[in-house]
Amino acid sequence: MFPKAKPPSPGADEGWAVLGSLMSGLLLFGGLGWLLDQWWDIRVMAPIGAVVGMALGIYAVVMRHAQRADTAPETSELTASAQARADAARALREAKTANRRRALRSAGSPTRPDPAPRSGTRRETVA
């Protein structure tokens, strides 16, 4: 009798990975900066460490996702059914183009034929 939980969205794991990278960079380098502050008895290394950690976290996220975008599937990597659909769509486009050219040649017109008048409910009246 419990309600069914919705499955998480496909991008949820990716979002958590990005958040984890950013937070780990901030905490790791901010913590190292804090330790250096305590050791050297100054108060400037923790903010520097936090900024450097966020910059490195952003860099890690960008490099991780830029690599994933570069590895988009090629046409050869498509499944057989997807490849068949792509081939059918390409053949249909080529057939439509050939039919248009044949219609233009048979009409003897070097330009495209005028479209058929659209019938609608709005009519113009001449006074």
Rank of each mutant, 00 (worst) to 15 (best):
R43L: 04
H65P: 04
A89Q: 07
A95R: 02
D70T: 15
P7Y: 08
A5K: 12
S81W: 12
A95Y: 01
L78M: 10
G108L: 00
A95C: 02
D87H: 06
A17K: 11
G108E: 03
L22D: 08
A84F: 06
P47R: 01
R93Q: 13
L36N: 00
A84P: 09
A84S: 15
E77P: 09
A5E: 14
A82W: 00
R105P: 00
L22M: 10
L22I: 10
M63I: 01
G57M: 14
T75Q: 11
F29D: 03
A72K: 15
W40L: 13
L92G: 14
R123D: 15
S106Q: 13
L27I: 15
S76F: 06
A66Q: 09
A98L: 09
L35W: 11
A12T: 11
V61M: 03
S109E: 11
T71H: 07
V62E: 11
V18E: 12
R101H: 05
L36Y: 03
P73N: 15
P10A: 13
A103V: 08
P73E: 15
A60T: 08
A84E: 14
R118L: 14
V18R: 02
V52G: 06
M54A: 15
R112P: 01
S24L: 12
R68C: 08
A55L: 15
L22V: 05
M54Q: 08
T71R: 12
V44G: 05
L104K: 08
R112A: 08
D41S: 05
R122D: 14
A98F: 06
R101L: 05
V126F: 05
L28P: 01
A89H: 06
E74N: 09
V51C: 04
T75K: 11
V62A: 12
R112V: 06
A46L: 07
G53V: 02
G15T: 07
G49E: 01
D37M: 07
W34V: 03
E74Q: 14
A98D: 15
G20Q: 02
A50Q: 00
G120F: 12
A98N: 12
T125A: 02
K6Q: 12
R85K: 11
T111K: 03
V62H: 08
P113Q: 04
D13A: 12
P73C: 09
P47E: 12
G57W: 14
V44C: 06
L56W: 06
A55H: 13
H65L: 09
R68V: 13
A89W: 03
L28E: 01
R43I: 04
K6S: 11
L26H: 00
S109K: 07
L56V: 02
E14W: 09
R100N: 06
P10W: 14
P47D: 05
P113S: 04
G11S: 04
D114E: 11
